[in-house]
Write a protein that binds this DNA or RNA. Structure first.
Lengths: 339, 339
DNA sequence: GCTTGGCACTCGGCTGCTGCGAGTGCCAAG
DNA sequence: CTTGGCACTCGCAGCAGCCGAGTGCCAAGC
């Protein structure tokens, strides 16, 4: 009962602060959220909440603002996920439906997400290891150079130039193409290593070094999660949360240009199957200690194709943001799954 | 003579202001650049320069700062291009040499440029219409869906899904592949429209609708300059030129996320064959009226593959920036040309 | 006729002061 | 446990005053 009201007070503080960006005081709180108690009572509760580390005051005799811990509690226990309106869902769908290819899907998604949430949006391109091979193409560029193109069922195209030790002719290329496709088409890339390792043995001896090289390249292309691409949009939104950001803005932008950092933030959310929130220091990135990351995976069930999410100030409308991220992820997943 | 000294004064003002970011006064000017005249004389010159619109004072009784027009004169007549040191050239080269594919080249270039100039860097992906077809691949996805992959000699890979009205089999695909390659390999994409138009006539009648669709797709893919991709890096550098930017930062970031705007800025420079500078309102983008754009084309001579450049505050070290842009463009051009 | 030193004037920015008000903590009474 | 009262804190806005960099103008000098 008492405990309940305290949580209610915390929720009220978070909600008011998100709205106004100003420390919220006991009086305003008691008035605006009909809590049925006096400001003095609220003050007692606030005192307790501060004691426990959920809120803090920026300076003596100012209102309170939530701490990382406070936001965390809010997200975990106090907020549902605002469902999007039917019109919003339709808007998302129709905006994404116009996409003509993979690049377009990703670009549209990231822009949509940025616009919707008014935050910085990040979308990871579908990862190969979660998709399967649809076709492998081998093209002769010159007698000693081959271009290998791997096409996946998500429409992603990965290319690689292979230098061959021995010169090869068109006929041999056909042979290689047939062998590779026969062995790999339909394979999940994640399962491929074994199959790939067995490849050289299946082919006539003089081609083995060449196939070995290609096998290596296939593996490298697939396993290498380093080179995964991401799209970002809405960095302009960072300036919205102006004041307290001002100094750190530069650091945040720098961190966001580090692919590695982003991949860790977004990538770690993709397997969970639900929207995850990292608040402040939970991001494990020092420059982002005043921000929060809301991310999720997209794509069919356990085999997430990639991750997407937004980065914004800790002071953000979590229920709405989580709903938006979830909705966009759902539609993108459907779009790519059906493709 | 008199005219000469005035220009010297303008140059000194630009150089000092770029360095200090503070309005520069007559006294400091006379001291720091041994002009051989007294502050009073400098004041007279400054007065004249202001009359002519090359400099202005932010408020009465402050020093002068250059106007758009002043920077323009400086760039046109007063500044050479600082040559890069040998070490710098080597650094550029070795950084770019490590690139493994086209994506990597572009990404490295844009990062390099951003780091070098400490500005926002933009690199346009090589445009197809300036390159030639190396190979066209056709893959059967399902009886009515074909994937066409166009590979250019710059290593760019463009993909397109074709819906066929009539079902096609593997054999037909082979035929299509042969026909397309025979007609188009080695063609400059810019020259292709005619060849493409003639294609349907060369093939047996029942395939004509299909080929027509593909021909349309080829043209669309090539001619469409809309979808050209660009890479950007170093947005964090915008915060460096803090104060006067503060309010407009948001607008600038927003403008830079508009592909169309960027393409116009960078693209227009690619054909000139030299480094071009757009200062302030010359950019024709309102949000960028307090910035300058230094851009150039890269790639062999008249057939520029694409454009690259940087966006920064008007108050920028033009000689150095121009040198850096030129150098990076040169190396990238060589790298892609030799590929 | 250009250059120069002198001089009065302007004005933005810094410093220090004051008053206001929002918000707190504590306490004693209900 | 809740509530009203009360003294206290402290950030902030507003104002005055000073300082100094920088200017424009003018009369004397080369």
């Amino acid at each position: 009962m008492l405990e309940d009201r305290r949580l209610e007070v915390l929720r009220a503080i978070v909600e008011d602060f998100v709205l106004s960006n100003e420390p919220v005081g006991s009086k305003a709180l008691a008035e605006r959220h009909n809590l049925g108690v006096s400001p003095a009572t609220v003050r007692n509760d606030m005192s307790a909440l501060e004691e426990e580390g959920y809120i803090t005051q920026p300076h003596t005799s100012a209102g309170r603002i939530p701490t990382d811990k406070g936001y965390r509690l809010f997200v975990d226990r106090l907020s549902g996920v605002k469902p999007l309106s039917r019109a919003e869902r339709r808007a998302i769908q129709s905006f994404l439906e116009g996409a003509v290819d993979l690049d377009d899907v990703v670009n549209r998604s990231v822009r949509l997400l940025a616009q919707l949430t008014r935050q910085v949006a990040v979308v990871q391109y579908p990862t190969m290891s979660a998709s399967s091979v649809r076709h492998i193409e081998v093209v002769l560029l010159s007698p000693r150079r081959l271009l290998m193109v791997i096409i996946t069922d998500t429409g992603r195209v990965e290319q690689r130039i292979i230098e061959s030790l021995a010169p090869v002719d068109e006929e041999t290329v056909g042979e290689l193409r047939a062998t590779l496709n026969c062995a790999l088409t339909g394979q999940r890339l994640a399962d491929a290593p074994g199959t790939v390792a067995a490849l050289p043995a299946q082919i006539r001896p003089e081609l083995r070094p060449c196939v070995a090289t290609m096998a290596g390249a296939v593996l490298e292309t697939m396993v290498e999660p380093q080179e995964e691409r991401i799209a970002m949009a809405g960095t302009a939104n960072l300036t919205r949360a102006t004041v307290d950001f001002a100094d750190s803005l530069r650091l945040i932008l720098e961190a966001l240009e580090e692919q590695v950092v982003l991949m860790k933030l977004i990538g770690s959310a993709r397997e969970t199957g639900t929207v995850t929130v990292r608040i402040g220091r939970e991001t494990d990135v020092d420059a982002l200690r005043s921000t929060a990351v809301v991310a999720t995976g997209y794509g069919r069930g356990p085999f997430a194709l990639g991750g997407m999410g937004v980065v914004g100030p800790m002071r953000m409308d979590y229920p709405w943001t989580m709903a938006a991220v979830r909705a966009v992820a759902k539609y993108v997943g459907e779009l790519l799954g059906a493709d």
